[in-house]
């Protein structure tokens, strides 16, 4: 167990270093950082001095090492556009994105898994077929269009729900939460549903496919041949075996929610990291892009670690070596 985790940790570090390298390469090859930091009237001498001061004349490895070291401490330099530290910008907006992603993840899981199980067990029922067809529409509806339609219907026509922003937030320490006010919660409904819809259909279809796979295995047939009731065969034996592959992909999917939020945030003008990022892309604000990339990679690595631990909990074949 310990050696397994250590191995995973090592892999995670390699992943983070690779992503950091990409982020660093963006600094190196895209635009001139000095040009982005100073005005038109700065002299060549001043520029050289600034270059020296920032260490841009150092060897590649030294520069990368410094970049990685700073990044590990959350320091990604100064935004070209806002002229403030990137970390401040990102941390200010992180709660909005994380709250949105969290609610969407819960929605996707709570609805996706039972629907997947249901459609697998009753796969020839009309309701299952209806759900499956509807889910295909869910997959075919681009996230931004879902958002637009929801805005049109609930915001413009019915005027029930707010269509942009987070509503009122409450500051708890440095964390601005929208969970504690009515308008904050109301504002969450449309964006979180928009963000969840795509993942929900994916998770549902995945659970269904895996469940069908497991239902065909010999041990399910043998369990039926022993006279075990359907309830036990389906939930005690089949569902638990379905979870092993589902955990991995679900983990990845939920990880991608944070990045996927870019679109939702853009449609709903949700003041999160995604919106910051999309603006950075338009403005070629490399520090923000780099920081966002590294942050997403970090969440990915974190979720992967959790998935691995969950694996251990579910699958005894990983736990023992005396097989």
């Amino acid at each position: 167990m310990v050696s397994f985790l250590l191995k995973r940790l090592l892999q995670s570090i390699i992943v983070m270093l690779t992503v950091a390298l990409i982020a660093f390469a963006m600094f190196q090859f895209v635009g001139d950082p000095i040009n982005n930091m100073v005005g038109q009237d700065t002299t060549q001498v001043e520029r050289e001095a600034l270059k020296e001061k920032l260490g841009l004349n150092d060897p590649f490895l030294v520069q990368f090492g410094r970049f990685a070291w700073n990044a590990a401490q959350g320091d990604f330099g100064i935004s070209y556009k806002y002229k403030t530290p990137v970390s401040d910008l990102i941390f200010e907006r992180m709660p909005a994105t994380l709250e949105l992603a969290f609610v969407s993840a819960v929605l996707a899981l709570v609805l996706g898994i039972p629907l997947g199980v249901y459609t697998a067990l009753k796969r020839n029922g009309w309701l299952s077929k209806f759900i499956m067809t509807t889910s295909l529409i869910g997959v075919s509806l681009p996230t931004f269009l879902t958002g637009i339609l929801l805005i049109l219907f609930f915001g413009v026509i019915l005027r029930w729900l707010p269509t942009f922003g987070r509503g009122d937030v409450v500051e708890i320490g440095t964390w601005a939460t929208g969970f504690l006010t009515i308008s904050g919660l109301k504002s969450l409904i449309l964006p979180s549903f928009t963000l969840a819809l795509f993942q929900l259909t994916l998770i549902m279809r995945l659970v269904r496919a895996e469940m069908l796979e497991v239902l065909r295995t010999d041990f399910v047939k043998f369990a039926k041949a022993r006279g075990l009731p359907d309830r036990s065969v389906h939930f005690k034996h089949a569902l638990k075996n379905t979870l092993v592959p589902v955990i991995t992909i679900t983990g990845l999917q939920l990880g991608s929610l944070i990045a996927f939020a870019i679109i939702t945030e853009s449609v709903f003008q949700w003041p999160g990291m995604g919106l910051l990022f999309i603006q950075a892309v338009s403005d070629v604000d490399i520090p923000i892009m780099a920081a966002y990339l590294v942050l997403i990679a970090f969440f990915f690595v974190l979720i992967n670690m959790i998935v691995d631990i969950l694996y251990y909990a579910v699958d005894p074949r990983l736990r023992s070596n005396d097989g």
Binding site: V30, F260, V281, S282, V284, M289, A297
Partner: peptide
């Protein structure tokens, strides 16, 4: 590694880099 980044994010990054 790439799978951990949604296609949209990678496309955005590449587009951003290309702009630069």
């Amino acid at each position: 590694i790439q799978l951990s980044f949604p296609a949209i994010l990678i496309a955005l990054l590449i587009d951003g880099v290309a702009r630069g």
